[in-house]
Design a protein around this nucleic acid. Structure first.
Lengths: 189, 189
DNA sequence: CGATTTAGGAGACGTTCCGTCTCTTACTTC
DNA sequence: GAAGTAAGAGACGGAACGTCTCCTAAATCG
C-alpha cells in the first residue's frame, strides 16, 4: 500500500488547515472543536497546528478571517442613499452571523479579549464615511454626529446577534435605521 | 485527630456550595473555574455538586443568582423623573458588571443558551413601567413606544458591557439617556 | 429509642483533550 | 548531491471531566 507520498507545505498546507478548522467548526461547533479534531480532519499532526497558532482561539480567528475574506472597510457601500448604505452594512453583519453561527460568536467573543475594542473603531470609521457622504449630498444637515450615535445601528445589530438565537430579520434592521438612527441624524440643530 | 464531625446538609450546605462557587469565580475567573476547585474550596466532594447542578454553567448561574439576590423587577426605581429612573436601571447593570467581571459575563453568555432571550423581556417590562409612569406624570406625550426604543438604553449598556473591558462610566450612561433615549421618547407625534 | 433510609465526604476510575516532545522522512535549498 | 527544514505521526504527563463506589453521619420513622 504505497500511501500518498505528496507532502503539503507552506501556504498550500496552511490553507488546508484553515479549511479543516472551518469545516470542523461547522461540524461540531466551537465548544467541541479540538485541535486534535482539526488535525485529524486535515490529515496531519497537532504539531503542525501549534507551529502556526498558539491555541484554539487564534486558530479559529484565523479560520474565520480566511473564510470571510476582507474586512468591511474594504468595500464600504455607496448606494447614493444614507438609508441604503447603513442597511447594506447591517445586512453584511447579518450575513456573517448566519454563516458563522451562534456558539462560534460567543466562543470567539469570550476568548479574543482586547481585540474586541478594535471592532468599535472599524465600525465608527465606516459609519463616519457614510455620514460624510450623506452630508455632502445634503441628505443630513451635518456629518458632525457624536460617536455613540454613529455606531448606534451597528451596536444594536451586534446586540441582536449576541443575544438572540434567530437570525436578524429585514424588519429588525429597518426598524433600527428608520425609527432610531435616521430620526437622530436628520433632526439635529 | 478527631475531625469536625459536623456534616452540613440541605439548604445550609447548598448555601456553602454557592458561596464557594462565587469565591472560586472571584479567585480564578470563569474559564479556570473547575468543579474540583469548587468542591475543594467547599471542603466536600464533586458528587455533592453534581447532585445539584448538571454542569459548570448551571452551577455558576445559580451562584450568581444566590449572590445577586433578586431580579431588577423586584425594585423598579421610582424617583419621579424618567431620566433618573432610567439612569438608576443602567447604574444597576453597571454595578453588576463591576461585581461579576468580564470573563464571567462572556462565559455565562456562551453557555446559558435560550435563557438569554428572557433578559430582553425582563428589561422591556421594567422600561414599560417607567414609561407609563412618565406618561402619567405628563413628562412624555405617550407611553406607547415601540419595544425597540423601550429597550434601547439597556441594549446599549449591555453592548458596552459585552464589548468593552473597562467599567461603564457615568458619562456613557448619561449620553445614552440624554442624547439618544430621551430625544426619541419626548419628540413623538 | 433503635432500625432504616438518605445524603455527605472522599476518592478511584476511565476518558478526553491539552500542549510538549521526539522521531523519521519528504521536500527544499544551496 | 549534501545539508537543512518542516511535515506527518504519535507518545507523553497533566488537568479536568463526569461516573462510580464506599463508608458513615444525620434525619426519619415505627
Amino acid at each position: 500500500m504505497p500511501a500518498e507520498t505528496t507532502r503539503r507545505r507552506g501556504a498550500a498546507l496552511e490553507a488546508d488547515l484553515l479549511d479543516a478548522a472551518w469545516a470542523e467548526l461547522k461540524a461540531v461547533g466551537y465548544t467541541r472543536l479540538t485541535m486534535e479534531g482539526v488535525a485529524a480532519r486535515a490529515r496531519t499532526g497537532k504539531q503542525v497546528l501549534y507551529r502556526r497558532w498558539p491555541n484554539r482561539a487564534e486558530l479559529v480567528v484565523a479560520a474565520l478571517r480566511h473564510r470571510q475574506g476582507g474586512s468591511i472597510t474594504d468595500q464600504v457601500p455607496d448606494t447614493g442613499s444614507l438609508r441604503e448604505d447603513v442597511l447594506a452594512v447591517l445586512r453584511l453583519m447579518a450575513e456573517r452571523q448566519r454563516d458563522i453561527g451562534q456558539d462560534v460568536v460567543h466562543g470567539v467573543l469570550a476568548e479574543i479579549g482586547p481585540m474586541r475594542a478594535q471592532v468599535f473603531e472599524i465600525m465608527r470609521d465606516v459609519m463616519a464615511t457614510l455620514l460624510e457622504r450623506a452630508a455632502a449630498r445634503g441628505e443630513i444637515p451635518t456629518a458632525d454626529v457624536p460617536p455613540r450615535i454613529m455606531t448606534l445601528p451597528t451596536d444594536l445589530v451586534r446586540n441582536e446577534i449576541v443575544m438572540r438565537s434567530e437570525p436578524l430579520t429585514e424588519q429588525t434592521m429597518s426598524e433600527i435605521v428608520d425609527d432610531i438612527f435616521l430620526p437622530l441624524v436628520t433632526r439635529r440643530a
